[in-house]
Measured scan of single mutants.
Amino acid sequence: MSIQHFRVALIPFFAAFCLPVFAHPETLVKVKDAEDQLGARVGYIELDLNSGKILESFRPEERFPMMSTFKVLLCGAVLSRVDAGQEQLGRRIHYSQNDLVKYSPVTEKHLTDGMTVRELCSAAITMSDNTAANLLLTTIGGPKELTAFLHNMGDHVTRLDRWEPELNEAIPNDERDTTMPAAMATTLRKLLTGELLTLASRQQLIDWMEADKVAGPLLRSALPAGWFIADKSGASERGSRGIIAALGPDGKPSRIVVIYTTGSQATMDERNRQIAEIGASLIKHW
């Protein structure tokens, strides 16, 4: 058993032996400061991975655009179909130039040979490839079927209504393609630790998130040596930015963190910096 498999397999085991986890309101002070700095709403939640207890939250039940963070949920739905014998990670999917949409750094290189379902999930999560996400959405029946999958998990909040890139429109008060921090954190925890997916599929999902290559300026920039993080970021119109993550010290995840912001006029660099500073406060007061 690899170190990674050891880590995921023991998450339920550690729940019975973990020390009490204490919240630190200092992080919420930073979240509120980020709102002031960005001139935008910020949603935040910090969840204990083992118990599911909410440690801190700010606007946990307000809607925010999901942006590309939905791609983790999408690959969770794909893995659920794999577990049920309805899909194979090794199945190759062929597509054409007409299928390519904006920001497809991986799929645009494989027009001649296509990509496997496994490769598409990797591209969608680690590189946020939009065509990969659309191709995967097609395999499960489209955005409405992803919403149905989430409903069956008990998440009646999170919804996907459109495809890439239209889902990134982020119109104020538009509930399409949105979630709430509390709903996203709970759903992510179920995917990573619950019985919905097999152990192998849970491991695969967290491996893809751990290999994320496009979230460096966010929480990863504040991470001390030896800490673990598996994450997925997102960005969209109207100053929207977000990240969902499982992270913790000693090389294993122990908390879920979800951060969303929307409605800012700030630059992408400034949005990144504010999220990184929230992460730094979280780690300092861990």
Rank of each mutant, 00 (worst) to 15 (best):
L38V: 06
R92G: 05
M67V: 06
S51G: 06
I3C: 12
V42A: 05
Q4G: 15
L111R: 06
L223C: 10
V106H: 06
M184V: 06
G194D: 10
W163Q: 07
E169Q: 11
R176L: 08
A266D: 07
S233F: 03
I283V: 15
S57F: 08
Q4K: 15
Y103G: 05
A170I: 13
S96W: 08
A200C: 12
A280E: 15
L219E: 01
R91A: 04
E62Q: 08
P60V: 08
P172A: 11
T179A: 01
H94E: 10
N98D: 13
E145M: 13
D129A: 01
T69D: 00
P12D: 08
M184R: 00
G142A: 02
T187K: 00
S2T: 14
E237T: 08
P60I: 08
T261A: 11
Q265K: 12
I278V: 06
G226Y: 04
D161N: 04
G43T: 02
A9K: 14
E175S: 10
C121L: 05
R162S: 06
D250C: 12
I275P: 02
T147L: 02
T187G: 04
R59W: 02
T131S: 11
I206Q: 11
S254M: 11
L89G: 04
T267A: 10
A222P: 07
D250N: 15
N134R: 01
T139R: 09
A16P: 10
I54Y: 07
P253T: 05
P12K: 11
L160G: 03
D113C: 10
P12G: 15
Q97C: 09
P65T: 05
G154R: 05
D174P: 00
K109Q: 14
V117A: 02
I206V: 15
L10Y: 11
I140N: 00
F149G: 02
P217S: 11
A84V: 12
V31G: 00
K232I: 00
T178G: 02
L282C: 07
H24N: 09
E166C: 10
A182E: 11
L247V: 10
T107C: 14
A124C: 09
T179G: 01
L188I: 09
I171T: 15
P181K: 00
N134K: 03
L188R: 01
A182T: 10
V157G: 07
Q4H: 12
S240Y: 07
E169V: 08
Q204H: 11
Y44I: 05
I283M: 08
T198N: 10
P253C: 07
L223Y: 02
D83C: 01
P60F: 03
T178P: 01
Q88H: 14
G226E: 07
I283A: 04
G251N: 12
T131I: 03
T138I: 10
A211D: 13
L136F: 02
L137T: 04
E145H: 12
M180W: 09
V8H: 15
E169S: 12
G239R: 05
A266E: 08
E119G: 09
R220W: 00
E145N: 14
L135Y: 02
R220H: 02
G43W: 01
H110D: 04
R241G: 03
S254C: 10
E62A: 06
K252N: 10
V29G: 12
L219V: 07
I171A: 14
T178L: 02
P25S: 08
M209L: 05
G263D: 11
Q86H: 14
T139M: 08
A200M: 10
S254N: 09
L55N: 05
Q204R: 10
S254P: 05
R63N: 04
G251C: 08
T198D: 09
P224W: 00
M66A: 04
